[in-house]
Design a protein around this nucleic acid. Structure first.
Lengths: 225, 225
DNA sequence: AGGAGGTTGTCGGCCGTTTGTCAGAATAAA
DNA sequence: TTTATTCTGACAAACGGCCGACAACCTCCT
């Protein structure tokens, strides 16, 4: 249930990997250049980063170096177009945790990601998100409110986690769909709304009756405190 | 049921040895470079290390030296591409517990590993895992609940042990397969489910009727307290 | 104020995937 | 060869996600 940040200028590849990785249980965000990657990282640190060596606005290695200095613990898995051995060495020396040559087998990518995450999280205490009276355990997908406990599906978990991480701040539907469903919303796609609806049903409103998840028309959803 | 760390840049060999050693009753993790090996060691110390002299990011001898200073007791068995006598001497001087030339006979490897482990673990207390009313002795593969005792097969033991080590925390099916079967799951592979099914049958449910091993759809299995 | 057009909430059903389990085959151990 | 263990289909059942449909709603325009 970890959140990944995909940084690669190839948008198609991103979407492909994104939907694969989502199916594998990750929550995925994607950036296509160093600039937006920096912003995404500043906004919210993911559990791991998949980084392409080649980026439109400068080398991925540059980004890696900077990333290392700001997020020392953050695991990074690097990708390169052809298995340039030089890049590989540079990447690993600069602190990438693993390295993969493109085109890469998605299965191998997930395997290595899991390995990298396992290594970096040796005995992470059960991470759980607490917001108000609500406690959420992403690994098990269980929300507890007072004495009540309810189990969420994978998509629901990803969506709720994303919302809980920034209570009060609305999250764009597109982005939420990317994180929760691993794809962009198409016209007439009600899946995300469906999930939100089910979430509301499962989690219920606040003690005083206010809804917990609120839609901001054409701006997305947010979790209300 | 000891856990090994395999450090060798040859991934194929690792998988091969990994599955052999798993069948021999070891739990196996593998790293392909010094960097990740260091992290893996820091994350969780194995019972022994199998270390290749040649690593992509520096000599295995370097790693050995460092390893020795940090884990004095940890048995290390070294491998070298060709039986370079110099390496052998260096390796043993730096504190490797044994030395083997590649290509090596898996049977010889297991034999020496057991020897090395026996030496280092002169009187290891019978480790057993206790969770709730259940007591499990991995070495013998016996679970006891109240007065009842049942014997598990090797695969069952490894799977149950992995689950018991983190009660309540789900373990991904892929990881569980790696631990229990020594390989990855392929499409339509029901082996793991089979083992879990058999485990449930052997061990039975909790006293109050709740199942002990629970599947979280697309998130894996966990042992319920 | 009235209405058009787009957005959101939800129901119900369809469908593909995951899981549980049986029975028999294949494989390894004795 | 016997025996124990693991793996392979095969099938059913449960589950989660998606889509069509429709109502309710909000915004903005006239």
């Amino acid at each position: 249930m970890s959140e990944l940040l995909l940084i690669d200028d190839d948008q198609e590849l991103c979407e492909l990997l994104g939907s694969w990785l989502t199916q594998e249980g990750f929550a995925v965000r994607a950036c296509h250049d160093g600039m937006s990657a920096r912003q995404a990282l500043a906004a919210q640190a993911p559990a791991a980063v998949v980084l392409d060596v080649m980026l439109p606005d400068g080398s991925g290695l540059e980004l890696l170096k900077q990333l290392r200095s700001e997020h020392a613990e953050l695991p990074v898995l690097m990708l390169s177009a052809r298995g340039e051995p030089l890049d590989r060495i540079l990447g690993l020396e600069l602190g990438a945790d693993d390295y993969l040559a493109k085109p890469c087998d998605p299965r191998e990518l997930t395997a290595r990601l899991r390995a990298v995450l396992r290594r970096s999280h040796p005995s992470a205490p059960t991470t759980q998100v607490e917001v108000g009276d609500l406690v959420f355990s992403p690994v098990r997908g269980v929300v507890s409110i007072d004495e009540r406990e309810m189990t969420l599906t994978l998509s629901e978990s990803r969506i709720l986690e994303a919302l809980l991480r920034q209570p009060g701040e609305p999250l764009d539907k597109q982005e939420l769909a990317q994180i929760g469903l691993g794809r962009k919303l198409t016209l007439y796609d009600r899946s995300l709304d469906m999930h939100v609806s089910n979430l509301r049903k499962k989690v219920g409103p606040h003690a005083d009756g206010r809804p917990r998840i609120i839609a901001l028309r054409s701006r997305g959803y947010y979790y209300a405190l």
